[in-house]
Protein backbone atom coordinates (compact mmCIF):
# COMPACT_ATOMS: atom_id res chain seq x y z
CA UNK A 1 0.00 0.00 0.00
CA UNK A 2 2.81 2.37 0.92
CA UNK A 3 4.23 2.40 -2.58
CA UNK A 4 1.01 3.37 -4.33
CA UNK A 5 -0.46 5.90 -1.90
CA UNK A 6 -0.39 9.61 -2.64
CA UNK A 7 -0.01 10.20 1.11
CA UNK A 8 3.58 9.97 2.33
CA UNK A 9 3.62 12.54 5.15
CA UNK A 10 1.11 14.82 6.85
CA UNK A 11 2.16 17.51 4.37
CA UNK A 12 0.30 15.55 1.70
CA UNK A 13 -3.00 16.10 3.51
CA UNK A 14 -5.27 17.84 0.97
CA UNK A 15 -5.60 21.55 1.77
CA UNK A 16 -9.20 21.75 0.60
CA UNK A 17 -11.50 21.80 3.62
CA UNK A 18 -15.09 20.70 3.26
CA UNK A 19 -15.76 21.27 6.93
CA UNK A 20 -16.06 24.99 7.66
CA UNK A 21 -15.19 26.68 10.95
CA UNK A 22 -17.94 27.56 13.42
CA UNK A 23 -19.38 24.10 14.07
CA UNK A 24 -20.94 23.42 17.46
CA UNK A 25 -18.86 20.46 18.63
CA UNK A 26 -16.92 20.81 21.89
CA UNK A 27 -13.46 22.33 21.65
CA UNK A 28 -10.96 19.54 21.00
CA UNK A 29 -13.55 17.04 19.65
CA UNK A 30 -11.94 13.97 18.07
CA UNK A 31 -15.13 13.10 16.17
CA UNK A 32 -15.31 16.28 14.14
CA UNK A 33 -11.59 16.03 13.38
CA UNK A 34 -12.24 12.57 11.93
CA UNK A 35 -15.07 13.93 9.77
CA UNK A 36 -12.79 16.74 8.56
CA UNK A 37 -9.93 14.44 7.53
CA UNK A 38 -12.26 11.81 6.03
CA UNK A 39 -13.98 14.47 3.90
CA UNK A 40 -10.63 15.80 2.64
CA UNK A 41 -9.79 12.43 1.11
CA UNK A 42 -13.25 11.81 -0.37
CA UNK A 43 -13.42 15.22 -2.06
CA UNK A 44 -16.46 17.45 -2.53
CA UNK A 45 -19.14 15.03 -3.80
CA UNK A 46 -20.31 13.32 -0.64
CA UNK A 47 -23.69 12.52 0.86
CA UNK A 48 -23.37 12.07 4.62
CA UNK A 49 -26.03 9.92 6.21
CA UNK A 50 -26.20 10.54 9.93
CA UNK A 51 -27.90 8.80 12.83
CA UNK A 52 -28.58 10.54 16.14
CA UNK A 53 -25.40 11.43 17.99
CA UNK A 54 -23.09 14.33 18.72
CA UNK A 55 -22.53 15.00 15.02
CA UNK A 56 -26.25 15.60 14.58
CA UNK A 57 -25.89 18.89 16.44
CA UNK A 58 -23.39 20.26 13.91
CA UNK A 59 -26.35 20.76 11.62
CA UNK A 60 -28.34 23.21 13.69
CA UNK A 61 -30.66 25.07 11.36
CA UNK A 62 -29.93 27.41 9.67
CA UNK A 63 -26.17 26.97 9.94
CA UNK A 64 -24.20 24.04 8.52
CA UNK A 65 -20.45 23.42 8.65
CA UNK A 66 -20.42 20.88 5.80
CA UNK A 67 -19.95 21.96 2.19
CA UNK A 68 -21.55 18.78 0.87
CA UNK A 69 -24.83 17.01 1.66
CA UNK A 70 -26.27 15.72 4.91
CA UNK A 71 -29.24 13.47 5.59
CA UNK A 72 -30.67 12.61 8.99
CA UNK A 73 -32.15 9.26 9.75
CA UNK A 74 -33.56 7.67 12.87
CA UNK A 75 -31.02 6.28 15.34
CA UNK A 76 -31.22 2.70 14.10
CA UNK A 77 -31.37 3.28 10.37
CA UNK A 78 -28.44 5.23 8.93
CA UNK A 79 -27.27 2.31 6.72
CA UNK A 80 -30.85 1.92 5.44
CA UNK A 81 -30.81 5.65 4.61
CA UNK A 82 -27.55 5.10 2.77
CA UNK A 83 -29.18 2.31 0.72
CA UNK A 84 -31.95 4.70 -0.31
CA UNK A 85 -29.55 7.44 -1.38
CA UNK A 86 -27.26 5.00 -3.21
CA UNK A 87 -30.17 3.43 -5.08
CA UNK A 88 -31.67 6.82 -5.99
CA UNK A 89 -28.35 8.00 -7.40
CA UNK A 90 -27.86 4.78 -9.36
CA UNK A 91 -31.37 4.86 -10.85
CA UNK A 92 -31.24 8.54 -11.78
CA UNK A 93 -27.85 8.17 -13.43
CA UNK A 94 -28.93 4.98 -15.28
CA UNK A 95 -32.03 6.74 -16.61
CA UNK A 96 -30.01 9.75 -17.68
CA UNK A 97 -31.84 12.10 -15.33
CA UNK A 98 -28.65 12.92 -13.44
CA UNK A 99 -25.27 13.34 -15.13
CA UNK A 100 -22.71 10.79 -13.94
CA UNK A 101 -20.48 13.69 -12.90
CA UNK A 102 -22.97 14.44 -10.11
CA UNK A 103 -22.60 11.03 -8.54
CA UNK A 104 -21.79 11.09 -4.83
CA UNK A 105 -19.93 8.94 -2.34
CA UNK A 106 -22.41 7.75 0.25
CA UNK A 107 -21.01 7.88 3.77
CA UNK A 108 -22.74 6.86 6.97
CA UNK A 109 -21.42 8.78 9.98
CA UNK A 110 -22.50 7.76 13.46
CA UNK A 111 -21.10 7.54 16.94
CA UNK A 112 -20.46 4.28 18.76
CA UNK A 113 -24.01 4.31 20.15
CA UNK A 114 -25.48 3.76 16.68
CA UNK A 115 -22.63 1.60 15.38
CA UNK A 116 -22.19 -0.77 18.34
CA UNK A 117 -25.76 -0.85 19.66
CA UNK A 118 -28.76 0.80 18.09
CA UNK A 119 -27.87 0.62 14.39
CA UNK A 120 -26.13 -2.74 14.71
CA UNK A 121 -28.59 -4.78 12.66
CA UNK A 122 -29.12 -2.12 9.96
CA UNK A 123 -25.37 -2.25 9.33
CA UNK A 124 -25.48 -6.04 9.18
CA UNK A 125 -28.22 -5.75 6.56
CA UNK A 126 -26.24 -3.27 4.49
CA UNK A 127 -23.16 -5.52 4.60
CA UNK A 128 -25.29 -8.49 3.58
CA UNK A 129 -26.65 -6.58 0.56
CA UNK A 130 -23.07 -5.55 -0.29
CA UNK A 131 -24.16 -1.90 -0.39
CA UNK A 132 -21.47 0.32 -1.90
CA UNK A 133 -20.94 2.80 0.92
CA UNK A 134 -18.54 4.04 3.58
CA UNK A 135 -19.28 3.83 7.30
CA UNK A 136 -17.38 6.17 9.59
CA UNK A 137 -17.94 5.45 13.27
CA UNK A 138 -16.40 8.07 15.57
CA UNK A 139 -16.01 5.96 18.67
CA UNK A 140 -15.87 7.89 21.94
CA UNK A 141 -16.84 4.83 23.92
CA UNK A 142 -20.19 6.04 25.31
CA UNK A 143 -23.34 8.01 24.48
CA UNK A 144 -21.56 11.37 24.62
CA UNK A 145 -24.37 13.48 23.22
CA UNK A 146 -26.78 12.72 26.04
CA UNK A 147 -24.36 13.04 28.93
CA UNK A 148 -21.99 10.10 28.62
CA UNK A 149 -23.95 6.95 29.35
CA UNK A 150 -22.41 3.52 28.81
CA UNK A 151 -22.55 1.87 25.37
CA UNK A 152 -21.24 -1.57 24.46
CA UNK A 153 -18.14 0.24 23.26
CA UNK A 154 -17.34 1.44 26.79
CA UNK A 155 -14.14 -0.25 27.97
CA UNK A 156 -13.68 -2.22 31.17
CA UNK A 157 -13.03 0.01 34.16
CA UNK A 158 -14.47 3.23 32.72
CA UNK A 159 -16.81 5.33 34.81
CA UNK A 160 -19.84 6.67 32.90
CA UNK A 161 -23.16 8.24 33.92
CA UNK A 162 -24.79 4.80 34.02
CA UNK A 163 -21.76 2.87 35.28
CA UNK A 164 -20.31 5.23 37.90
CA UNK A 165 -17.63 3.99 40.26
CA UNK A 166 -19.53 3.30 43.47
CA UNK A 167 -19.02 1.25 46.61
CA UNK A 168 -20.92 -1.68 45.06
CA UNK A 169 -19.16 -1.32 41.69
CA UNK A 170 -15.77 0.21 42.49
CA UNK A 171 -14.48 -0.39 38.95
CA UNK A 172 -17.22 1.44 37.07
CA UNK A 173 -18.03 -0.50 33.90
CA UNK A 174 -17.44 -4.21 34.40
CA UNK A 175 -18.32 -5.19 30.82
CA UNK A 176 -15.77 -5.44 28.05
CA UNK A 177 -15.61 -3.29 24.92
CA UNK A 178 -17.30 -5.03 22.00
CA UNK A 179 -14.90 -5.94 19.20
CA UNK A 180 -16.84 -4.27 16.39
CA UNK A 181 -13.94 -4.66 13.95
CA UNK A 182 -14.23 -8.45 14.23
CA UNK A 183 -18.03 -8.38 14.14
CA UNK A 184 -17.98 -6.44 10.88
CA UNK A 185 -15.13 -8.53 9.46
CA UNK A 186 -16.78 -11.91 9.96
CA UNK A 187 -19.85 -10.66 8.12
CA UNK A 188 -17.55 -10.63 5.07
CA UNK A 189 -17.36 -6.89 4.63
CA UNK A 190 -14.69 -6.35 1.96
CA UNK A 191 -12.92 -3.59 3.88
CA UNK A 192 -12.83 -2.85 7.60
CA UNK A 193 -10.27 -0.56 9.24
CA UNK A 194 -9.52 1.12 12.53
CA UNK A 195 -8.32 4.73 12.58
CA UNK A 196 -6.78 7.14 15.02
CA UNK A 197 -6.65 10.86 14.23
CA UNK A 198 -3.18 11.00 15.76
CA UNK A 199 -1.84 8.69 13.05
CA UNK A 200 -2.84 10.95 10.19
CA UNK A 201 -0.99 9.32 7.32
CA UNK A 202 -2.35 5.88 8.22
CA UNK A 203 -5.82 7.49 8.38
CA UNK A 204 -5.49 9.16 4.97
CA UNK A 205 -4.20 6.00 3.31
CA UNK A 206 -6.99 3.82 4.64
CA UNK A 207 -9.69 6.16 3.38
CA UNK A 208 -7.88 6.35 0.04
CA UNK A 209 -7.71 2.56 -0.12
CA UNK A 210 -11.44 2.28 0.57
CA UNK A 211 -12.02 4.23 -2.63
CA UNK A 212 -10.59 1.35 -4.68
CA UNK A 213 -13.00 -1.18 -3.18
CA UNK A 214 -16.64 -1.69 -4.14
CA UNK A 215 -19.06 -2.62 -1.38
CA UNK A 216 -19.18 -1.78 2.33
CA UNK A 217 -16.09 0.05 3.62
CA UNK A 218 -16.25 0.30 7.36
CA UNK A 219 -14.07 2.50 9.58
CA UNK A 220 -13.91 2.84 13.34
CA UNK A 221 -12.12 6.00 14.42
CA UNK A 222 -10.92 6.28 17.98
CA UNK A 223 -12.30 9.75 18.75
CA UNK A 224 -11.03 11.32 21.95
CA UNK A 225 -13.77 13.10 23.90
CA UNK A 226 -12.44 15.78 26.29
CA UNK A 227 -15.89 16.41 27.78
CA UNK A 228 -16.93 12.83 28.42
CA UNK A 229 -13.54 11.42 29.35
CA UNK A 230 -12.40 14.36 31.44
CA UNK A 231 -9.15 15.76 30.10
CA UNK A 232 -7.96 19.12 28.79
CA UNK A 233 -9.02 19.62 25.14
CA UNK A 234 -5.44 20.50 24.21
CA UNK A 235 -4.41 16.87 24.90
CA UNK A 236 -6.97 15.36 22.53
CA UNK A 237 -4.45 14.15 19.94
CA UNK A 238 -1.98 13.13 22.67
CA UNK A 239 -4.60 10.81 24.20
CA UNK A 240 -5.21 9.31 20.75
CA UNK A 241 -1.45 8.79 20.33
CA UNK A 242 -1.19 7.07 23.71
CA UNK A 243 -4.06 4.68 23.06
CA UNK A 244 -2.16 3.44 19.99
CA UNK A 245 1.23 3.33 21.72
CA UNK A 246 -0.17 1.34 24.64
CA UNK A 247 -1.65 -1.14 22.16
CA UNK A 248 -5.17 -0.66 23.52
CA UNK A 249 -6.34 0.56 20.11
CA UNK A 250 -4.59 -1.43 17.37
CA UNK A 251 -4.41 0.19 13.95
CA UNK A 252 -5.32 -2.49 11.45
CA UNK A 253 -7.32 -3.26 8.36
CA UNK A 254 -9.08 -6.28 6.91
CA UNK A 255 -9.25 -6.78 3.15
CA UNK A 256 -11.66 -9.56 2.25
CA UNK A 257 -11.27 -10.96 5.73
CA UNK A 258 -7.47 -10.94 5.87
CA UNK A 259 -6.24 -8.83 8.78
CA UNK A 260 -3.05 -6.81 8.68
CA UNK A 261 -1.75 -4.42 11.33
CA UNK A 262 -0.83 -1.12 9.68
CA UNK A 263 1.06 0.32 12.62
CA UNK A 264 2.90 -1.88 15.07
CA UNK A 265 4.16 -0.24 18.27
CA UNK A 266 7.65 -1.68 18.69
CA UNK A 267 7.42 -1.65 22.46
CA UNK A 268 4.08 -1.16 24.16
CA UNK A 269 3.71 1.69 26.65
CA UNK A 270 2.10 0.40 29.91
CA UNK A 271 -1.68 0.95 29.81
CA UNK A 272 -1.45 2.87 33.07
CA UNK A 273 0.10 5.81 31.19
CA UNK A 274 -3.04 6.06 29.07
CA UNK A 275 -5.57 5.42 31.84
CA UNK A 276 -4.06 8.14 34.02
CA UNK A 277 -4.78 10.85 31.45
CA UNK A 278 -8.54 10.69 32.01
CA UNK A 279 -11.06 11.42 34.73
CA UNK A 280 -13.18 8.41 33.73
CA UNK A 281 -10.42 6.11 35.01
CA UNK A 282 -9.45 8.17 38.06
CA UNK A 283 -11.17 5.75 40.47
CA UNK A 284 -8.64 3.09 39.36
CA UNK A 285 -5.86 5.15 40.96
CA UNK A 286 -7.55 7.04 43.79
CA UNK A 287 -7.67 6.90 46.74
CA UNK A 288 -5.43 3.85 46.25
CA UNK A 289 -4.42 2.14 43.02
CA UNK A 290 -6.65 -0.81 42.11
CA UNK A 291 -3.73 -2.70 40.67
CA UNK A 292 -5.75 -5.83 40.01
CA UNK A 293 -8.08 -3.96 37.65
CA UNK A 294 -5.18 -2.23 35.91
CA UNK A 295 -3.42 -5.55 35.42
CA UNK A 296 -6.59 -7.08 33.95
CA UNK A 297 -6.60 -4.29 31.33
CA UNK A 298 -2.86 -4.79 30.73
CA UNK A 299 -3.20 -8.54 30.33
CA UNK A 300 -6.06 -8.13 27.83
CA UNK A 301 -3.75 -5.94 25.75
CA UNK A 302 -0.84 -8.37 26.12
CA UNK A 303 -3.00 -11.31 25.12
CA UNK A 304 -4.18 -9.44 22.03
CA UNK A 305 -0.68 -8.57 20.86
CA UNK A 306 0.72 -12.05 21.58
CA UNK A 307 -1.89 -13.50 19.24
CA UNK A 308 -1.43 -10.77 16.63
CA UNK A 309 2.36 -11.15 16.73
CA UNK A 310 2.07 -14.89 16.25
CA UNK A 311 -0.41 -14.59 13.38
CA UNK A 312 1.47 -11.91 11.44
CA UNK A 313 5.02 -12.50 12.65
CA UNK A 314 5.24 -9.06 14.25
CA UNK A 315 7.94 -7.81 16.56
CA UNK A 316 6.17 -6.31 19.58
CA UNK A 317 7.82 -5.92 22.96
CA UNK A 318 5.34 -6.16 25.85
CA UNK A 319 5.77 -3.90 28.92
CA UNK A 320 8.24 -5.11 31.57
CA UNK A 321 6.91 -7.76 33.92
CA UNK A 322 3.98 -8.56 31.62
CA UNK A 323 2.14 -11.78 32.27
Amino acid sequence: MATTSRFKTLKDMPVEDYLTPGNTMCAGCGGILAVRIFHKVLGPNVAWINAAGCMTITMSYPLSPIKSNWLYTAFASAPAGAQGVRDALDFLIAKGRLPASEDMKVVVVTGDGAAYDIGFQATAGAIDRNLDFYYLCYDNEAYGNTGFQMSTSTPFGASTKTTPATEAFPLGNTGRKKDLFEVWRIQKAPYVATLSNSHGVDFLRKVEKGGTIKGPKLYIDFAACPTGWGFDPKDSVEVEKLVVQTGIWPLKESVNGVVRHTFVPRSLVPVKEYLKTQERFRHLFEPAEKSEAVSIIQSQVNEYWRKAAAAEDLDVRLPEGAR
Binding site: T20, G22, N23, P62, L63, S64, P65, I66, K67, S68
Partner: peptide
Protein backbone atom coordinates in the same frame (compact mmCIF):
# COMPACT_ATOMS: atom_id res chain seq x y z
CA UNK B 1 -29.69 28.96 4.64
CA UNK B 2 -28.93 27.65 1.17
CA UNK B 3 -25.22 28.46 1.30
CA UNK B 4 -23.21 25.37 2.20
CA UNK B 5 -20.69 25.73 4.99
CA UNK B 6 -22.43 28.86 6.31
CA UNK B 7 -21.45 28.05 9.91
CA UNK B 8 -18.56 30.54 9.60
CA UNK B 9 -20.91 33.30 10.74
CA UNK B 10 -21.50 31.60 14.07
CA UNK B 11 -18.22 33.02 15.39
CA UNK B 12 -17.32 30.36 17.91
Amino acid sequence: VTRTGNSTVRHT
